[in-house]
Design a protein around this nucleic acid. Structure first.
Lengths: 334, 334
DNA sequence: CTGAAAGCGCTTACAG
DNA sequence: CTGAAAGCGCTTACAG
């Protein structure tokens, strides 16, 4: 491995000058700069980041915190795309992404603080963490800049980003109402996802705005899986609940709902209209294709990463949370 | 941040002794060790890894190389689960995972070598890379220990791991034959996935072993998406091809195939049996539920990571590739 | 069993 | 515009 001193020797310059030339200091003549750069390139010089980090007390390392143990494909896909956005943003900066080690549910895990301090982590990007995850408590201690997807927490160094869930629910309900529906069942997800209460809120608010009264008999709680959507609608049908449309808080549950409706010999959307939430990859291919609320997952990651970058660069900036627009995608199911 | 010297001062010991105590050197008395450890804990000491790395010339950093830009949900899910396995394995070691920065297709990316050298990366775990990805060429230069999922490359420092694709195809074909099928159509994926030719091979071999002759009229190539499976079967039906079963090289294509078959008014599995490959999350919930070849994605990651760890620790070890067992999952579609 | 000192490869305040 | 030297926080060969 060639190092600064090797370049210096070869050029008969001091180490100091070489370092400064490579870091584009003003004091170095452009002639020297050019010479040093050229030589560095020829010799295949690559800076040693440990040494830089140690000297600068700056790691250019962002840590990614997410959960491996939620196995629904839409959770995986959501997380994957959010991370793609994060990676894409930081790919344009000197920052690299490091993954916090495997968080096995059962084992005691090392405090976040230690992990961050030992690797000199400068910021944390958190996605797909459940509301009961112990890391949340650690984040509240506010020891490091962090951006969290979907969990509402704002402190001096921590903020969050999420899709505009209220707007999403409003778009869905408004659309169904515009299609003549007034009995709109709602299948929500469990409260381990911080978005669930928001979506329930959004549903209620949208009903009210349309002059429709809330009826808890047509609201069910699933767990974001296809099966739970299926079960919820079977239950509704069994109870002979009065509804002509279903709004599900995830596409997976919407697909389950459709399955239950079809099994009963009813048609989607003729007998019962169905709207999902997320716009995952298969929404387009399910049968009938899904009308749904699209979340811009990549943007959540990209914009969240940008926000995190700003917090790091400008620690005094007062933080505010951020919402990413959602979009009503009209297909066949409603 | 408390450092070694702070502990030393507090205890009236030398920095050397403190370092040795914390690193469990034999020469330090167990009394001193205990004292130092206790004090370190009380003071909230966390070792600075940059400094350690610099002194030891060891980073304990593994880099993860994967592609963001393939948008099928099963690619994302596959990659996600493989990475979960990698993370889980290395979570038990001192190694952390770092993600190589966003590889935008169009932009020139930094040579892998530079990235690795500058961060002192000790090994590379590669997953979901297409056969035409430029990184492949760099890996062939053999400058760093690496384990690749699904791309067959063995050098002095690089090896690969994959599911037993041949066995998978054999299981699928044998099963269909045992159910009385002899006209088994095959929908393969494109050659940008290194597994595609293997699966074609496996299909041919299995046919031969069952005394069935290969007929290229009932072999189609898709691109691993649902739509391509759908299109392939529509094409077969349009050509009035003679087949009573479809074996698809991915579950997504199998789902597409089923859709096309149903649209034609045929029943699955009564008129046409369908077998997929992967066993992704939704295979169980599709209608009819999918008979398929399960890949153990987590194990691919976990065992691949283990292999990588061994290569790093023991550089002289001659490398061999590794296969992970697959499993026939029988459900309704065949 | 313990310590003083050199070294890992950088950056930068200080001096010229 | 350039350089000698100190420092970032560790580890470890050498000496005792």
């Amino acid at each position: 491995m060639v190092k600064l001193i090797d370049i210096a020797k070869k050029l008969g310059l001091s180490l100091t000058t070489v370092s400064r030339a490579l870091n584009d200091y003003e004091e170095v003549s452009s002639k020297t700069k050019e010479l040093v750069r050229q030589t560095a390139k020829e010799m295949g010089y690559v800076p040693n980041k440990f040494a830089q980090n140690l000297a600068l007390k700056k790691s250019h390392l962002i840590s990614l915190l997410y959960d491996d143990y939620q196995e629904t494909i839409s959770y995986q896909s959501f997380t994957f795309e959010v991370i793609a956005g994060v990676r894409n943003y930081f790919g344009r900066t000197p920052y690299d992404l490091i993954i916090v080690p495997g968080n096995l549910k059962s084992e005691t895990r090392e405090p976040l603080k230690n992990i961050c301090y030992s690797r000199g982590i400068e910021g944390l990007f958190v996605v797909g963490i459940r509301t009961n995850d112990p890391y949340i408590e650690e984040l509240k201690k506010d020891f490091i800049p962090a951006v969290i997807v979907d969990y509402p927490l704002i402190t001096k160094k921590v903020t969050y980003i999420q899709s505009d869930n209220l707007m999403g629910c409003k778009l869905a309900v408004d659309y169904l109402v515009s299609r003549g529906h007034s009995r709109i069942a709602f299948i929500n997800g469990h409260d381990l996802a911080a978005v669930s209460p928001l979506r329930l809120d959004g549903y209620k608010t949208a009903l009210k705005e349309n002059g429709i009264s809330f009826d808890e008999d047509i609201v069910k709680v699933g767990n974001y899986t296809e099966k739970s959507g299926y079960d919820a609608v079977r239950q509704l049908l069994k109870e002979k609940a009065d509804f002509s449309a279903v709004f599900a808080a995830s596409d997976l549950m919407a697909v389950g709902a459709i399955k239950a409706i079809k099994e009963k010999g009813l048609k989607v959307p003729e007998d019962v209209a169905v709207v999902g939430f997320d716009d995952v990859f298969f929404a387009e291919y399910s049968h009938p294709s899904l009308t749904t609320i699209r979340q811009h997952k990549f943007d959540l990651g990209y914009m969240g990463a940008k926000e995190l970058h700003e917090i790091i660069e400008n620690p005094e900036k007062p933080l505010r949370s951020r919402k990413i627009d959602v979009e009503l995608i009209i297909r066949e199911s409603a």
